[in-house]
């Protein structure tokens, strides 16, 4: 495989990990978030600072990065999840802008220069780059998918699904809305933190604009395109939205126009996403698979 393809595949992998986290929040628990890039950024900045300032290795820092991101997710989720729908969308956009501004204006975070000189990840004495780094990302993506699969079958997952479908009915069944929305938010932001750490050690130079609002839009587009609440949706979405800009390089200036158009078209014609129930792909596969299996 040539280096160019590996680069694209690696970035798709990282985006898919972060989008899986967003899928837990939006697809499983039904809570809109337009600020997921903030947590991607918090993960990347924590990893970068722990590596460059504290001198920790990627492996020593990773658990810390995930915990830090999830804790900030918990802290910001607590007030945010008290509002619903449009207000939640606006609140999460606000979070994105505030976090980006903090990275940009506080010298500790490198200011406009960002943070450079982030070391490569070492594994068994080998520097990971190119194909080996891609395989590491793939490994973490599979881990994240396995966790999502387990969570969707757990009691916590069932509570999130119930809240997504009918919040007041779920509450009158004894399911605490705050508790399980927060659980989804913490899981989702922890995955964003993991993606951020991988991103920081891959790009090795990060700055605030890498985690600005349009990135949140891209992440939401990935989830909506692939199918909210499905297991593989974020992966399919990340592959398509990661590959298309490369195929249509000359149209790069119009990328976000395209994302918006795509979001609108999906919501109008395939609201469940490519892999969602009732979608074209889903119907084709239901025809191929034996009765009763989906």
């Amino acid at each position: 495989m040539n280096a160019y393809l590996i680069t694209i595949a690696t970035l798709i992998c990282i985006n898919a990990i972060v989008a899986c986290g967003l899928n837990v929040i939006v697809g499983f628990a039904g809570q809109i978030s337009l600020g997921h890039a903030a947590f991607f950024g918090i993960g990347a900045y924590s990893a970068a600072l722990l590596a460059t300032k504290a001198g920790l290795s990627f492996w020593a820092a990773l658990p810390l990065v995930v915990v830090i991101t999830a804790l900030i997710g918990l802290l910001l989720g607590l007030p945010s999840l008290r509002v619903k729908e449009d207000f939640l969308a606006i609140t999460t956009i606000g979070i994105n802008f505030i976090v980006e501004a903090i990275f940009l204006y506080i010298p500790f975070f490198g200011g406009a220069l960002g943070i450079g000189g982030i070391p490569r990840i070492m594994l068994f004495g080998v520097r990971l780059k190119g194909l080996t780094f891609f395989l590491l990302c793939l490994f973490f993506l599979l881990l994240v998918l396995a966790f999502c699969w387990w969570f969707s079958r757990s009691w916590g997952g069932l509570a999130c699904f119930a809240l997504r479908e009918e919040e007041s009915a779920a509450a009158s069944m004894g399911i605490s809305p705050v508790r399980f929305k927060l659980l989804a938010f913490v899981i989702g932001t922890a995955m964003a933190g993991l993606g951020g750490a991988l991103y920081a050690h891959y790009i090795r130079f990060i700055s605030a604009t890498d985690f600005s609002f349009p990135v949140s839009v891209l992440l939401l587009s990935i989830v909506v395109l692939g199918g909210m609440g499905t297991l593989w949706g974020p992966v399919v979405g990340a592959v398509i939205l990661g590959a298309l800009p490369e195929v249509f390089r000359p149209l790069v200036d119009y990328r976000f126009l395209f994302y918006m158009l795509l979001l609108l078209l999906m919501i109008r014609y395939q609201p469940a996403g490519l892999l969602g129930e009732g979608s074209m792909v889903h119907r084709v596969f239901s025809l191929l698979l034996p009765e009763g299996k989906k």
């Binding site: 699904f161 119930a162 069944m173 399911i175």
Partner: peptide, 24 residues
């Protein structure tokens, strides 16, 4: 416990899963 107006079952959850939401 309440049986809400128009049932308000969880549409995409199976019958069994709907019942399980009652035992948290």
């Amino acid at each position: 416990r309440m049986v809400p107006e128009r049932a308000r079952v969880f549409p995409r959850l199976t019958v069994y899963e709907n019942l399980m939401t009652g035992v948290y």
